[in-house]
Design a protein around this nucleic acid. Sequence first.
DNA 1: CACCAGGCAAGTA
DNA 2: TACTTGCATGGT
Length: 215
Amino acid sequence: MTRRKRFAEIYRKLYRSFGPQGWWPAESPFEMALGAILTQNTSWQNVEKAITNLKAARVLSFGRLSRLKEKEIARLIRSAGYYNIKARRIRNFLSFLETRYSGRIERMRCLDAKVARHELLEVNGIGPETADSILLYALGKPVFVIDAYTRRIFSRHGFKKEARAYETLQQLFTQHLACDARLFNEYHALLVKCGKDFCKKNRRRCAECPINEKK
DNA sequence: CACCAGGCAAGTA
DNA sequence: TACTTGCATGGT
């Protein structure tokens, strides 16, 4: 079987098993970008509580959030963990948006994906996965997001070596799939769903993973 | 109790 | 280049 068919087959199995995932669960590109920072090595459940706090405080916008001190942001996002470092990262992102895009993340949409990615990676606190999440989910760019689940799943299904480095695994998806933001969106979300349910570090439920099914 | 979650940066060798 | 460590809450 070619790799192209393998990548398509895995997607098909995941989609048939789990259905559409409806990512990203946010009301605006700005909220998505914030969520991307908040969810760094953190369960989405804890991030939701932080987002809820920000909304309750009426500060989930560039203008309102920019007026808060770092300590205030930290207090509001406490439930997301790493709150001091994440508050700093959010401030870094806000000042980036301010200086380059007048605080309007939508203005990044007209950029080439490679240029936008490079700019985002310049922000201290935004690494490859956070940058790609913002590109794909907030800006609608056809960029495949690699995360710990994606690595683990493909590592366990014949791509052990390629799954080591972020860019290497990302290139495999880019090469073997149609360049389609909606496909990338759904595929990544399905991998996270599959990882949460069946491909955890302990291999207890590994055998039940839909990728193992015959067809 | 231990372990894990939709990472990243900084330090070390 | 390739590890190691700190960051922290909340669920299982």
